[in-house]
Simulated scan of single mutants.
Amino acid sequence: MQNTTTHQHTDCLRCGRTLTSARSTAIGYGPTCARHIRNAAVDTSDYKPHQIASARELIADAAIIPLRSTVFLAVSTDGTETYRSAPTACTCPAGLKGSRCYHQLAARLLLAA
């Protein structure tokens, strides 16, 4: 048997305001911040389509949270590991090899919003 828990956020992960709707507490962002993140203008030409989709999914799942001004804590795809990620670097296996990973793109999207 696998224990699955979901975390309900009480404050927006982007601006820190109190979340009031059930949908907002489930995703971790208020409607205005979610719209800003969706519409963030970031150059994604150097990322593959699956990386863009993974970055957007990471944000939608509230699996990337801010630690400091440009540093984020990102959860791995299977949920077993966490990585420190910034727009230019990441501690995931791909990031340690010098490759661009979707954690970095998610950080760029959040900072551009």
Rank of each mutant, 00 (worst) to 15 (best):
A34R: 14
D46A: 14
R68Q: 13
T44W: 01
L67H: 08
R68L: 07
T91G: 03
T70D: 14
Y29A: 10
P31Y: 03
I65A: 09
A26M: 08
I52T: 11
H36F: 03
R84K: 12
L58C: 02
S54T: 03
Y29M: 10
T77W: 03
D46C: 03
F72Q: 09
T91N: 09
T77Q: 11
R68Y: 11
A34E: 14
T25K: 15
R38V: 15
Y29D: 05
D46F: 01
Y29S: 04
T77V: 04
P31C: 03
I27E: 10
E57D: 13
G30S: 05
A41F: 04
A60N: 12
P66Q: 12
A62I: 06
T32Q: 13
A41T: 14
S54N: 14
A41K: 11
H50T: 06
S85K: 02
D61N: 11
D78Q: 09
R35L: 06
D43W: 03
G28H: 08
S85T: 15
P31G: 02
D43M: 01
A86K: 13
T88C: 10
V71M: 02
R35V: 01
G79D: 07
L58E: 09
G30Y: 10
D61A: 15
I59D: 00
T80M: 08
A55N: 02
R56D: 15
R84D: 11
I64W: 01
A60I: 01
A41I: 14
I65Q: 15
T80H: 06
D43N: 14
D46T: 08
Y83H: 07
C90H: 10
A40D: 07
T77G: 04
A26G: 08
A74K: 08
F72A: 02
D78H: 12
D43F: 01
L73W: 05
R84Q: 14
R68A: 11
T82F: 00
L67R: 09
C90G: 08
S76D: 07
T32R: 14
A63R: 15
K48S: 10
P87L: 07
A86Q: 15
R35K: 13
T82Y: 04
T82A: 09
I27Y: 05
L58M: 09
P31E: 07
R38E: 15
A34Y: 12
A63H: 14
T91E: 14
A53D: 09
A55V: 02
V75P: 00
K48I: 07
A63T: 12
V75F: 00
T91M: 12
A55M: 04
L73N: 08
T77R: 12
P31H: 04
R23I: 00
S69R: 14
E81M: 13
V75T: 13
S76L: 01
A40K: 11
A55L: 02
A34L: 13
A89E: 13
A74N: 06
H36N: 11
A55T: 04
R84M: 05
P49I: 13
I64N: 03
A74L: 10
I59M: 00
I65W: 01
P87A: 05
T82I: 03
F72K: 12
L73S: 11
G28M: 08
